[in-house]
């Protein structure tokens, strides 16, 4: 898809927004575009975009995140540099919005500028394997709550159905009727289907707009640092 100046990833808590935002920023950078990525998540205390700061720096991507991210200070603070994302229109911006309506509330402050510029994509990240968004109806419920909280409408859907490290190509295929229904009920196009890069081969040609997630393994490592062992219980 042709990138808009601003791409906003929002959706249900734990749907995979941060990981997709990181991968999407890297993708834009690979396309030769100047990119800045912003962490607007005010609800998650751990596993934040800040964990990937070094990786992003190495790839020439500036990260804007709360100075208190990953610290012991538990305040939902936003960094002042975020204003630069809407005012400096020379760079492509990727925005990671916190989960659910509570997380999306923080976006509201920047919405008037985003609407005024009118060069954005607001994407709903959906994972059918999350227990509170297993049906299209439930997902649309979450979607409407987010729109109400931040005052901006979604423009597209990202299918990010996955079971973490256990995801198979079949899980992604099984999610297609759900995503189709979500798309039809909401009237929004499916902009991309995110899959772990090693599953892309199996799904090539069967799903449109596949978006491989390369950073996922790094992210899992950061998250758990643990492989599965055989236990002799």
């Amino acid at each position: 898809m042709k990138p808009k100046r601003l791409t906003l990833f929002a959706g249900h808590y734990g749907s995979g927004k941060t990981n997709i935002a990181l991968n999407y920023a890297l993708y834009l950078k690979e396309c030769g575009l100047p990119v800045v990525i912003a962490d607007l998540d005010i609800v998650n205390p751990y596993f934040r975009m800040k964990d990937s700061e070094e990786y992003l720096r190495k790839h020439g991507i500036e990260l804007i995140s709360s100075p208190y991210a990953n610290s012991n200070l538990d305040v939902p603070a936003m960094p002042k540099e975020i204003y630069g994302i809407t005012s400096d229109r020379s760079r492509y911006g990727v925005l990671d919005i916190g989960g659910d309506d509570r997380g999306a509330l923080a976006l509201g402050r920047y919405v008037p500028e985003i609407l005024e510029e009118n060069d954005y994509e607001m994407l709903l990240v959906a994972n059918r394997s999350r227990p509170l968004t297993r049906t299209a109806a439930d997902t649309i419920g979450v979607m409407r709550e987010i729109e109400e909280a931040c005052g901006i409408r979604f423009t597209g859907i990202v299918n990010n159905t996955n079971l973490g490290p256990d995801t198979t190509a079949q899980d992604v295929k099984d999610s297609l009727p759900y995503i189709q229904e979500l798309s039809e009920s909401s009237g929004l196009p499916v902009r991309m289907t995110c899959v772990r890069h090693d599953l892309c081969g199996e799904l090539e040609g069967q799903i449109e707009n596949l978006f491989p997630l390369h950073l996922q393994e790094l992210y899992y490592m950061l998250k758990t640092e643990v492989p599965n062992g055989e236990a002799d219980i």
């Binding site: 205390p45 751990y46 394997s129 973490g164 490290p165």
Partner: peptide, 13 residues
């Protein structure tokens, strides 16, 4: 511990 509360994994309830 906090990590167990915050991490995401597949689970069969």
């Amino acid at each position: 511990d906090g990590t167990m509360g915050q991490m995401m994994e597949p689970v069969v309830l």
